[in-house]
Design a protein around this nucleic acid. Structure first.
Length: 454
DNA sequence: TAGTGAAGGACCC
DNA sequence: ATCCAGGGTCCTTCACGC
């Protein structure tokens, strides 16, 4: 069955519209994928968004063909050369394998939706999504049975599930519950790494040692504790590194856990049949590319194609792919990371009305400035992101001599960037500031200045 | 040639 | 009737001036 690239003339055009919505995801078992695919297609067909997706698909297809050509052009000598390069690299990577740490990845179950249900128990048992008609952030498990899921526009979700209840996002609420969960995490690893409001990585090596407990026992205890403190369930994965722990936490979701022992054989067996899409960092495009250009579907096949991967990809990409094949991941203590940029963006119905666009930009400059002042930040690289009526995204950036943070300064430079693009019909404008490492030392002075000014 | 900046993308939640 | 978010990170490629 050569289904991959057939276009719309097969009688089932929706099969060639590749969305992310039908991917295997917790709670999506037993969903009528064909039906979901067809409805998503029918709701999307003909829209500007759809046309843009087709353009992107075509571009990726081209990229894949280029790669296939490159592969075909490799001589036997090239192939044996790159195989040697790959074999050497695999040995080097293997030598970095560290099986001494036990990592745990916690992932709250349908977090936003669960929090909303907690504060409004009448939602219990009903299909519900947090988000709006234009976009859904999270769907509860009742809704997922209809094929409704995160990142799906609300109007399509409602078509899939007419009785779907929509609840608007309320980050304050989620932050509050997130803080409660983090207090629990603290007890198991004071240096835990928060990946988002609802996810964290914990190095539980010491906790296991101190409590004379296995990783699985610690995971049970932690999940119970999170439930007691918040009334929310979570899932956990335990493994020898962060990459594997994250894959594991998805296996028995929701309200479950999975332990991968710190044993090379166990890791290799686990990895061997694992679809590459399960790995964090491998998304729709990379999956597509690796499948169609190399025939790679599982992590094990990364190793079987190691020579080709080294021949066609950059050093860092190839290293990542080989690491995936070996089941390697970071085990080191997380470094304290400072935020690198701060941004604000708004979507509106597409327009080329310049007065309107400048007003939107002024609003964004003001919002951005307020956020920067709140955090005591200033920056010198200003980036304007524009999304045209046809969903094409452009970014325009300037790096300034001076660090700025006032809405006047932001607006002054952002307006210049916007002006150069006119006339244009837009549906989104974003303003972002970055690169303030030097300037963060001046935080106190900025705060003072701000206090003085107001 | 190393470093930097700009633009575009992939990906994550 | 409504017609695909907003907040980030990191990587790659290319151009440029020292």
């Amino acid at each position: 069955m050569a289904k991959s690239e057939s276009s719309g003339d097969t009688g089932r055009p929706w099969q060639s519209y590749h969305t992310v919505y039908t991917n295997a995801k917790a709670g999506m078992e037993g969903v009528d994928k064909e039906k979901v695919q067809r409805i998503v297609y029918e709701m999307s067909k003909g829209s500007k968004y759809f046309e843009n997706e087709e353009r992107k698909e075509a571009y990726i297809k081209q990229k894949i063909e280029n790669m296939q050509d490159q592969i075909a052009k490799l001589t036997d000598a090239d192939i044996s050369h790159y195989q040697k390069v790959a074999d050497k690299r695999i040995l080097e990577l293997e030598a970095t394998r560290d099986l001494t740490r036990i990592w745990l990845h916690v992932d709250m179950d349908a977090f936003y939706a669960a929090v909303e249900t907690l504060s409004n128990p009448s939602l219990n048992g009903k299909p519900m999504a947090v988000g709006s008609m234009s976009m859904i952030s999270t769907a509860n498990y009742e809704a997922r049975r209809f094929g409704v899921r995160a990142a799906m526009p609300g109007f399509i979700a409602r078509k899939l599930c007419p009785e779907l209840i929509f609840v608007p996002v309320d980050f304050k609420k989620y932050t509050h519950y997130s803080d409660l969960t983090r207090k629990v995490f603290q007890n198991y690893d004071p240096n835990f790494m928060a990946a988002s409001l609802d996810e964290a990585y914990l190095d539980i090596t010491n906790a296991c040692y101190e409590r004379d407990a296995t990783g699985g026992e610690i995971a049970e205890e932690l999940r119970k504790s999170v439930y007691e403190e918040t009334g929310l369930t979570c899932s956990a994965g335990v493994g020898p590194n962060r990459l594997l722990a994250k894959v594991c936490s998805d296996i028995n979701k929701p309200n479950g856990q999975f332990v991968l022992p710190n044993d090379r054989m166990a890791v290799m067996a686990f990895i061997s049949s694992l679809p590459i899409r399960k790995i964090g960092g491998i998304g729709k495009v990379t999956e597509h590319l690796l499948r169609d250009a190399f025939g790679i579907a599982t992590c094990e096949e990364m190793l079987q194609n190691s020579g080709f991967l080294c021949a066609l990809f950059s050093r860092s990409s190839a290293d990542f792919f080989l690491s995936v094949g070996l089941g390697l991941g970071r085990t080191d203590a997380p470094e304290v990371k400072l935020r690198k940029s701060i941004s604000n963006e708004r979507t509106f119905s597409a327009t080329d009305d310049e007065a309107f666009l400048y007003q939107k930009l002024a609003d964004l400059a003001e919002m951005l400035s307020v956020d920067m002042k709140k955090e005591g930040l200033c920056g010198r690289t200003l980036t304007l992101k524009l999304k045209t009526a046809s969903f094409e995204v452009r970014t325009r950036a300037v790096t300034l001599q001076k660090y700025i943070f006032s809405s006047e300064d932001i607006l002054k430079h952002a307006s210049k960037l916007l002006k150069a693009e006119l006339p244009i019909s837009l549906r989104l404008i974003a303003a972002s500031m970055g690169y303030w490492s030097v300037c963060s030392l001046l935080t106190d002075q900025i705060t003072e200045l701000w206090n003085f000014k107001f």
